[in-house]
Nucleic acid binder design. Sequence first.
RNA 1: GUGGCCGUAGCUCAGCCUGGUUAGAGCGCCGCGUUGUGGUCGCGGAUGUCGGGGGUUCGAAUCCCCUCGGUCACCCCA
Length: 420
Amino acid sequence: MPPAPPFRAPSGTHDVLPPESARWELLVSRFADLAHRAGFGLVVGPLFEDVGVFQRLGEGTDVVRKEMYVFEDRGGRPLALRPEGTASVVRAFVQHRPTTPWKVWYAAPSFRYERPQAGRYRQHHQLGVEVLGSDDPDVDVDVIALAHDLYRSLGLRQVTLALNSIGDRACRPDYVDLLGTYLHERTEQLCGEHRQRAGEQPLRVLDCKRPECRHATDAAPRMLDHLCGACAAHFERVREGLDALEIAYQLESRLVRGFDYYTRTTFEFTATALAGAQNAVGGGGRYDGLVEQLGGPPTPAIGFGIGIERVLLACDAEAVLTPPAAGVDVWVVDATGGAEARDLSWSLRRAGVAADRGFDERSMRAQMKLADRSGASLALIVGPEERARGTVSLRQLRGDGAQQVVARDDVVARVKELLA
RNA sequence: GUGGCCGUAGCUCAGCCUGGUUAGAGCGCCGCGUUGUGGUCGCGGAUGUCGGGGGUUCGAAUCCCCUCGGUCACCCCA
């Protein structure tokens, strides 16, 4: 190694560089299109918030308990880098009180102090939407369909949707009691960790992947069988909507998800093509109580987050979303010192043509190599001869290399013709 | 936070087990063949404190210890 670089990206973070970053751009713009088409507006907010904003997410969530980047600014204010997107959006809603339903989307980083591994980073990026102010089941359908259509538009085929309802404050407490009793009678069958923690978080035991818990909860009472009338009706309408839009899903009574704030509808998208352990590519749910917890009026809401890095991994696994050919259409080669390249490239750019050039007065041979490697389809060549005559040689780089001489004043128009 | 695996050129890696001449290959990069022309081909070139520190030895990329970094998995999630 050369003298080891004194600095590198912090553990769990990564640089996204060209040409790979072209896929990133494409993914975000694809999502932005879908969101706009569905009537969502962009929300951009702070990367850090008062730590209290996230603590309200619930003490039961690992993300809040042990994974937050917390710090004090110079004024001694307790802050935290945001570990997820929803809380910030809810805080903004409570602060500004926009008219409802408020439909917003975002593309933003999240920070969690975890041990990095494939598909899991300390800074990762999420695409998300939130709808605040409506408990219409069709909103649930809209939100789920948006995520579904994003995966589909990318060409992903091996993404499955798991769906559940975890009830609301009317019916969940009774169910949790019921489940707690069931688990209590079988404590000995649970895995080591849940043998101790089952009492405080009965729902989490359902989500445990260890075989012991898995087996012990196979016959456990299911939330879906104990929804109150309102929740059951809501869920039924959500299912009708998904069916009508031909969005396939599997009922997954174990799906509780990591945040305490969820109510009623919860869902998760899994990329089955991903070999690694981290194959959840998106998830979300309804959070009808969160706005109140953050000091706002009672406001039903729902949203999702989609992990950009994981979606791209899934795209790799399915060999879709191939990087668009990046680069310019025209390369300007100047063997007279560079001033011609400067002027020509800007004439083209100002006329809307993507053009680039080499620097440092390199040989024509070297410049032609750059032109070739750039992927440009045309090379504009200016040597002493062209300059003296006020012309430009225009060479096709793809195909036979046909070359023509064009008057300097006609170059931009001619280039546009050839590229059309 | 716990555990497995891996650190040799910009990248992918060989060499390590069985210590011994100036540490290699492919790709990439730069130059030349072609003082006005890329893609093919040929020739030439640059870049390594062999992750770092310590130890064993006449001698360490190679053996031992520590450390740092990466990676994968658990937990949990996007």
